[in-house]
Design a protein around this nucleic acid. Sequence first.
DNA 1: CATGAATGAGCCTTCATTCAT
DNA 2: TATGAATGAAGGCTCATTCAT
Lengths: 201, 201, 201, 201
Amino acid sequence: MAVTKATSGRTSRERVHRAAVKLFATKGFHGTGIRDLAEAAQLSSASLYHYMPTKEQLLAEIMRDSLQSLLDAAHATLDGVDDPAERLDRLVVLHVTRHAREPQRTRVVDNEVDALSAASRRGVVGIRDAYEKLWADAIDDGLRNGTFTTGEPTATRLALLDMCNGVARWFSPRGPLPAAALAEHYADLARGMLGGPPRQR
Amino acid sequence: MAVTKATSGRTSRERVHRAAVKLFATKGFHGTGIRDLAEAAQLSSASLYHYMPTKEQLLAEIMRDSLQSLLDAAHATLDGVDDPAERLDRLVVLHVTRHAREPQRTRVVDNEVDALSAASRRGVVGIRDAYEKLWADAIDDGLRNGTFTTGEPTATRLALLDMCNGVARWFSPRGPLPAAALAEHYADLARGMLGGPPRQR
Amino acid sequence: MAVTKATSGRTSRERVHRAAVKLFATKGFHGTGIRDLAEAAQLSSASLYHYMPTKEQLLAEIMRDSLQSLLDAAHATLDGVDDPAERLDRLVVLHVTRHAREPQRTRVVDNEVDALSAASRRGVVGIRDAYEKLWADAIDDGLRNGTFTTGEPTATRLALLDMCNGVARWFSPRGPLPAAALAEHYADLARGMLGGPPRQR
Amino acid sequence: MAVTKATSGRTSRERVHRAAVKLFATKGFHGTGIRDLAEAAQLSSASLYHYMPTKEQLLAEIMRDSLQSLLDAAHATLDGVDDPAERLDRLVVLHVTRHAREPQRTRVVDNEVDALSAASRRGVVGIRDAYEKLWADAIDDGLRNGTFTTGEPTATRLALLDMCNGVARWFSPRGPLPAAALAEHYADLARGMLGGPPRQR
DNA sequence: CATGAATGAGCCTTCATTCAT
DNA sequence: TATGAATGAAGGCTCATTCAT
């Protein structure tokens, strides 16, 4: 009931996860010490272990949660949409928006897969593959029905994802372009790359 | 001059640098221990220090060398070329080719900037900025003379670079597309993204 | 009085003591963590502290209780017995039977004295000395009245005790010899070691 | 060449092993911290790792070496001796002498087997079994040719070993009985326990 | 009675680095 | 040039214990 301190996070668990996301994004998983984490979470390093089994499993959980939430959002935004170009637009917009608005969380997901143990990695990569399949399907469908015309669908899909991921590295909410506008622009770029029809605005 | 042993690398110095590139790319700078380095370079960890002042400065040197070589190559390939679209083509082809052919070296450059001390970072970022200015100039010139038509030159330039950097993460020489063909494809994509004229082949 | 749960031990206090005996015997005092104890006692580690002041004092209490009970039993079995050989027989039989039937408890007593603080140790060693004095007295009496003939009463007494203690390390109720028969055999051995008359059966 | 300090051990490696034996014997393996070890060996805790792979493997090595040396000595002392009683005498004398003269080393061997990992334990127990087989064979041979008359050879062998092991716990070179005399006395005791003929002196 | 949360101290081990040889 | 020996600092994690609820 009582909030003892005016601290940033609500619960200790939340503070630990927030601190981990921030530090893993900033200094990398291997560059982040358990003591850094403790300090950022306003906890002793021993207390950290009430909220995580292991530093590595904390990373795994963050990545799984983040990817699962992205996959869920993707399913939601695609629900009932048939047109491949429209589907791809929505994927790009979702992806870019996330990366612009939650750059730390997405950077961790995109950059720290190598830090996972083989066991953890399997789970994480499984979700990521399911998510990327949504992109591949939209592109394949678009090629099949003539909406898209690229000669290199696989390379183009990877180019698309890399380009969208990059947003998390440089986007600033204080920059000239708001996240929403950037996302729209990226959707335009995607159409251009796939040889699809220009979007109506 | 004398070659003391018939080992994989030519000189000890070379073996150290090769080992560092491979390990920093694979496990990250913080994930690579001095003992890993020593083992991979077939040297004792003490001997390592004949060939580097510090682990961090070894990283800095690798990054500086790699970026400088890229910048030099860029100047060379742009020499005497005026057409902005052609300049951008060449930058894309050079960049993609490098990232496909030297994925480890480029991955270190692209991912480990945060591991540098402030002092080292300055030097590295300086070269990288000079390199990226070549891209910015080509795009600006193209916009000025009407070759390109994008409304968001900055965002597009960053998208372009991120997309090209990504190649180092997934390209395989055993895949369906040779590095050279991939580079050409990426140049096409770049034209599409900037609203430039399709390339002749 | 109320039995709250149908668990293996009767009360929580009993479960804690049982768990401690088992674990201290199996893994040693220093090898047993407070969490091991808690898990084995089906309690949280915090709740443990309702039933013990300290891990070390729990050990001390176990040792004191066990030794006191052995001393009491020794007094009881010796009550009214005068013949030194008979006294020694009874001590051996009691000791061996205990060690065969309660190997864990006796192993803790025999092996973990060094883990006690100086303060706790004093009390424990006091009881043990009183107990060993019963052995020494029986032997001395037997020597005085010619029942025993060993030239090294002290060394022989220690040999006797060590040999009897050892039973706790290897005796199995599923072995060929029941505890009672083993105890009788050890009494025979003791007579042989002390040069006493063979026992009647 | 130069001996820098008038320290107890000759080389660092020796000091580490000596310190480990002393501390493992005194405080137990689990009761001995790596820092205790380092201090006793006059080394930093980091330097310890030049001379051992792991604290547990240091224990294993000490135990293996000690047991192997005992087994070798047993083979040597039994060489060419046929009479079972004489064989057993020699085993007892060797065993007791060792335990009296090297109480720490032998205590570690006798008490810390449980601290070994399963892998290390296998090796150690293998040697110990080979050694104990020498005792069992002597006893069996003695029974077969009528030298010994015990009805419980197995229990008696275990009693014998436990009794001899105990010496390491209490023998003092400043006590009334020298190690050699104690060993002879124990050989007498062994004869008595096995129902063998009294020894000639 | 019972426990979740918390922690200072300590665990074993590895870190990057230095230096005498 | 090469390295074995050495180390202070730090690594991730567990320890026994306390206390508010």
